[in-house]
Amino acid sequence: MSPTISCDSVYKIFGANANKLLADSNGSVDAKQFQEAGCIVGVNNASFDVEKGEMLVVMGLSGSGKSTLLRCISRLTDATAGKILVDGEDICLMNNKQLVELRREKMGMVFQNFALLPHKTVIENIAFPLQVKGVSTENSMYKALEMVELVGLKGRENYFPRELSGGQQQRVGIARSLAVEPDIWFLDEPFSALDPLIRKEMQDEFLRLQGVLNKTIMFVTHDFDEALRLADRIAIMKDGIIEQLDTPGNIVLNPATDYVKKFTEDVPREKVLKIESIMDPKDTNASDNLKVSKDDIIESVAEKILNSKEIIKVIDPKDSSEVGSINPSKVIKVLFGG
């Protein structure tokens, strides 16, 4: 089956003569050079796939082109060059009508600053995508009410955005983006305007939702902890270039470039690594009292393992078969170094 999103050498360059400069450069774009020529490089040669049901987290410093990449894929802006396939269809070739159709049926987006319509109440904001689609008022309100419940805003349907806290506003944004039941869900730093406590709460909420909905997701964030909690894979961007795109574990263990290395240096490994990455082969001495899954993040089971003081069996969560063993001393090594 073809991937849900597929990007092939996508470029986005801002500036008057971007097209000409890009054509002259033969695909190797140097951000500095372009800047001297009066162009800003937003996305530089991005190629990657996102599979159905996968969550790709895009990271990078401010100005690294994360939002621009998302905008290209949702065609809020036109990519300067490259091919972007969504469910096998090239969106760069779509006309306005097809594009409206695509957004109405397949895509949902959550914005960093909520972007709620100030003149509409909570329920009207959520029903808005349905109403522009032509769903009857009654049906769209019914559906919107369902969404209100899903994001836990029941009782606040008739509030205006300005009467809500940041966390509540973002719930409305999430509900709105989900109202049309999109397959693809874009989230551009959805939680970065929230304070840490609420952010944590919203992340849990988000994971719960994703557990239920299982959508294909591109999620932009600044926050490595957030990325680690959520991601199937992480893409790290710098000056428009995707420096590395891999699983969290690989990014931390095998950084592809110095930049990625620096980026991940301070990340505590136990937060990233799965048991799998430090387990030993099957061991007949392993105790039967305790089993851990190979997909468990080390940090989450470290206490258990250390308390048991014996070698523990590691199993595959799919069929509960034994796949290896783990020695507490290995865990100590990861936790305390040495």
Binding site: L76, R103, M109, L117, P118, H119, P129, V132, R176, V180
Partner: peptide, 28 residues
């Protein structure tokens, strides 16, 4: 805010819908 316009677009507004349902009411 440009985000509000983009939210309108992502909600699947056609151009007239964007004008009459998003832009003008938001600038009310």
């Amino acid at each position: 805010s440009p985000e509000v316009v983009e939210a309108g677009l992502m909600s699947g507004c056609t151009k007239p819908q964007l004008l009459f349902k998003v832009l003008i009411p938001a600038a009310r």
